[in-house]
Computed example of a mutant assay.
Amino acid sequence: MRRFELDPRLAADTGAIGTLGLCTLRLMNDRRWPWLILVPQRNDLSEIFELTPLDQTMLTFETNLVAEALKAETGAVKINVAALGNVVSMLHVHVVARNPGDANWPGPIWGHGTAEPYGTDELTETCERFARTILKA
Rank of each mutant, 00 (worst) to 15 (best):
N104F: 00
P53A: 12
L27H: 02
L45D: 03
S46Y: 03
P34Q: 08
L51I: 03
E68R: 14
T57V: 08
D55A: 14
A82V: 08
T63I: 03
A67P: 02
R132Q: 14
L22V: 06
R3K: 15
M28F: 09
L10T: 02
V39I: 14
H94E: 05
F61C: 10
W105N: 01
S46T: 15
L123P: 03
K136S: 14
N29E: 05
N86W: 09
L6R: 01
L54Q: 14
V66G: 04
E128T: 11
E125P: 00
N104E: 09
K78V: 11
T124R: 15
R9Q: 14
R98D: 08
E116Q: 13
D7W: 04
E47H: 11
M58S: 11
Q41H: 04
L27K: 00
W35A: 00
A103L: 09
L10P: 03
K71A: 15
R2V: 06
T60V: 04
R9P: 04
A67D: 01
L25E: 08
Q41P: 04
L91S: 00
Y118W: 13
W110S: 03
E128M: 11
E62S: 10
F49T: 12
W110E: 06
D102G: 07
N104A: 14
T124F: 12
K71N: 07
G21E: 15
E50H: 08
R98P: 05
T74M: 08
L10G: 03
V93M: 08
P8V: 05
V87D: 09
P117T: 11
P108G: 14
T57P: 00
E125R: 13
V87M: 12
E62C: 10
D13C: 01
Q56E: 11
A131V: 01
A69Q: 12
P40Y: 03
M28D: 00
V39Y: 02
A69F: 01
T124S: 15
T126A: 09
T60W: 10
